[in-house]
Write a protein that binds this DNA or RNA. Structure first.
Length: 117
DNA sequence: CCACTGACACAAG
DNA sequence: CCTTGTGCCAGTG
């Protein structure tokens, strides 16, 4: 088929979304983990940037609330509406959150590059 | 083409 | 504990 120039970058979003959707219920992952899964060349910022696009039409169905930073903090909660919905969604799935921090983060942590391999 | 921004990570003070 | 600086890549103005 003919070349598709615009299709290439879309692959990046799909990669991120695909990983996020594969996160098991009651589990969480970090931006850095996803970035490393895609390749160390991909900085964690790109993941957050992809999530930013996820709040729109592209990310419909994407569980962005399951993605937290390396400390297990819900740093992206401010992008949810309302912000507390991120914590509510996590607790609803069995993930306890205290002070915007995921409890038992190491237990809830799901590494795409390790379990999804 | 250049400058700024961004839901991060890591290091240093 | 908090702030600042640097790296990383892509998007937007």
């Amino acid at each position: 088929m003919p070349s598709s120039k615009s299709e290439r970058k879309r692959n990046f979003f799909e990669d991120v979304y695909d990983v996020v959707r594969l996160i098991p219920k009651g589990r969480v992952t970090s931006y850095g983990a996803i970035a490393r899964y895609l390749g160390t060349g991909m900085s964690a910022r790109m993941v957050g940037w992809a999530m930013n696009a996820a709040h729109g039409v592209r990310g419909v169905g994407t569980k962005a609330h399951r993605v937290v930073n390396s400390q297990g903090l819900l740093t992206g909660r401010h992008h949810f509406v309302p912000p507390s919905s991120m914590q509510s969604s996590l607790e609803k799935e069995g993930v306890k959150v205290k002070k915007h921090q995921v409890q038992d983060f190491e237990k809830k942590f799901w590494d795409p590059g390790k379990e999804l391999i």
